[in-house]
């Protein structure tokens, strides 16, 4: 085990997509930009490769594909293949040397977090955009569980769609450029997203912040009606919409669940003026660093005061399209102006 396959986020930056996958590289980049992100480390793509080779899972998958190559063309069989291959991956044990090293990092993470017991999130971090769900496990406790969940994330690289995709592109089926992020869970009081563009009309002069009580999953999934704050980048003017938030996502012993929001909090805004300002300030900074509108996820910790309680878990270019019609009209306007001189 000579080559390095575990990295602290601060060792990474956006150039490390191939090494650790986009999510980890991005968390590294965010750390470098001075954003507060939950402490954690990355399992490299190489780590995945090593697991597959050392446990023999890689060869078994290759054999499986060789045996079933003709059947794999039908979607039904791809589903069966997905199940079989996941089974191959998930039934392997982590090789002892790899396990040892993961434990070491996990212990160090606890030290960094300053706690004897921590809960972590184990998230997949693909190096290329791959269709199909890749797993995220929240609120994972104990080193054995962490190792287990890492293997499960690796197994999740073999969804039906991912298999179909690799077959279609002629890519080797057992190779998945997938990294894993292991990061401490924040005890979320409230959480949500911020976009430095109004995605509906492509207005880049505004920042929009959405949030809810509890974990950010409820906002990201779009299941509830979150609070919404639209902030003008220039003037800082805020347009506030506080909604009635009845459900939120919280941890349970292991994993998460949907819970009722306590009555007295339902109509209350989930972040205060100062927290909003801080979120917007950083979002604008990151946007100007990447010179591109950002879509970011934030979490406010139960303990601590702003700005120390603000954590970031995601920053990526915002997907938005200027409404086509608007663009066409703009071009028509420019062409018209051309004739005036």
């Amino acid at each position: 085990m000579s080559e390095k396959w575990l990295y602290w986020f601060e060792e990474l930056h956006s150039g490390h997509n191939e090494l650790v996958g986009k999510k980890c590289a991005n968390l590294g980049e965010m750390t470098g930009l001075g954003m507060r992100i939950p402490p954690g480390f990355a399992v490299s793509v190489e780590g995945y490769g090593r697991f597959m080779e050392q446990t023999g899972a890689g060869e078994m998958i290759r054999q499986y594909v060789r045996d079933h190559i003709d059947e794999l063309k039908s979607v039904k069989n791809q589903t069966a293949a997905s199940r079989a291959i996941r089974q191959i991956v998930e039934s392997r044990e982590m090789p002892p040397d790899m396990r040892e090293e993961l434990y070491r990092y996990y212990e160090e993470l606890k030290l960094r977090a300053g706690a004897d017991e921590i809960a972590v999130a184990v998230r997949s971090s693909g190096a290329v955009s791959m269709p199909g769900q890749m797993e995220t496990y929240l609120n994972v406790r104990g080193r054995e569980s962490v190792v287990r969940k890492i293997i499960e994330v690796w197994g999740s690289a073999f969804t039906t769609r991912a298999i179909a995709f690799r077959l279609e592109k002629g890519m080797p089926i057992e190779k998945a450029p997938i990294g894993v992020a292991v990061l401490k869970m924040v005890q979320a009081r409230s959480a949500g997203v911020v976009l430095t563009v109004l995605p509906t009309i492509g207005d880049t002069s505004k920042v929009v912040v959405e949030g809810n009580w509890g974990l950010g999953e409820s906002v990201v999934s779009g299941d509830i009606n979150p609070d919404q704050f639209i902030v003008d980048k220039e003037s800082g003017c805020v347009e506030c919409t506080v909604n009635r938030k009845t459900k939120m996502v919280v941890y349970k012993d292991s994993g998460t669940t949907v819970a009722d929001v306590p009555e007295d909090l339902q109509g209350k805004r989930c972040l205060d003026e100062q927290e909003l300002k801080e979120i917007v300030r950083i979002a604008k900074e990151i946007e100007s660093h990447f010179n591109c509108p950002q879509d970011m996820e934030w979490v406010l910790d139960c303990s601590g005061r702003c700005p120390e309680n603000l954590y970031w878990v995601q920053a990526r270019p915002a997907k938005f399209s200027k409404v086509k019609e608007k663009e066409a009209d703009y071009l028509a306007e420019l062409m018209t102006r051309m004739f005036k001189c």
């Binding site: 066409a328 028509a332 062409m335 018209t336 005036k340």
Partner: peptide, 12 residues
């Protein structure tokens, strides 16, 4: 000009 702004749209 007013007409042109509409008439050029099919090209765009």
């Amino acid at each position: 000009e007013v007409q042109f702004r509409k008439a050029i749209l099919p090209f765009i």
